[in-house]
């Protein structure tokens, strides 16, 4: 382990009313094992809390876990708040029960950089993040 290397910091956030965070925890654990620093917010976060936490923790990646169906409201709201806070560069990922047409809309609108849904292997998320930051260095 190289303790000097810059670490990728990821905020795993559970916005809104859904109370299931097993998936978010599994993802957090996988990212940890991939050498990332993962900040987990806990349940029931407002969009404002998620954006402000991303700012204070100065994360490189924000990953939302939304299983409640409210992704078309929550994701754009959080993206907007992040942009307002001068965090346009943050990699913005959304995971959860997201129908394909919604996923396409969120990406086309520039809200999300990528969408992950149940059945996507964990390595897919890790590889996606690592690839983004490998090319940025």
């Amino acid at each position: 382990m190289d303790v000097k290397a810059k670490k990728i910091r990821v905020l795993v956030a559970k916005p809104g009313l859904d109370g299931h965070d097993r998936g978010a925890r599994v993802v957090a654990r996988a990212l940890r094992d991939a050498g990332m620093e993962v900040i987990y917010t806990g349940l029931h976060q407002t969009p404002e809390q998620v954006a402000e936490t991303a700012l204070q923790e100065d994360v490189d990646v924000v990953g939302l876990s939304i299983l409640s169906g409210a992704h078309m409201t929550l994701a754009p709201k959080i993206r907007h708040l992040l942009n307002e806070k001068d965090m346009k560069d943050v990699l913005f990922l959304v995971g959860g029960i997201i129908p394909e047409e919604d996923a396409e809309k969120l990406i086309a609108a520039g809200t999300a950089d990528q969408i992950f849904t149940p059945g996507d292997p964990l390595d897919k998320i890790i590889d996606y993040i690592n690839a983004k930051f490998a090319s940025a260095e």
Binding site: M1, D2, V3, A5, K7, A28, R29, L31, R32, D33, A34, G35, M36, E37, V38, I39, Y40, T41, G42, Q45, T46, E48, Q49, E52, T53, Q56, E57
Partner: peptide, 20 residues
């Protein structure tokens, strides 16, 4: 982690009422 170099930073879960 001494193995992966990663970490779960979960202390602020208890403090999120002060996030704003």
């Amino acid at each position: 982690s001494p193995f992966s170099g990663g970490a779960i930073l979960g202390d602020r879960i208890r403090m999120q009422d002060h996030a704003l």
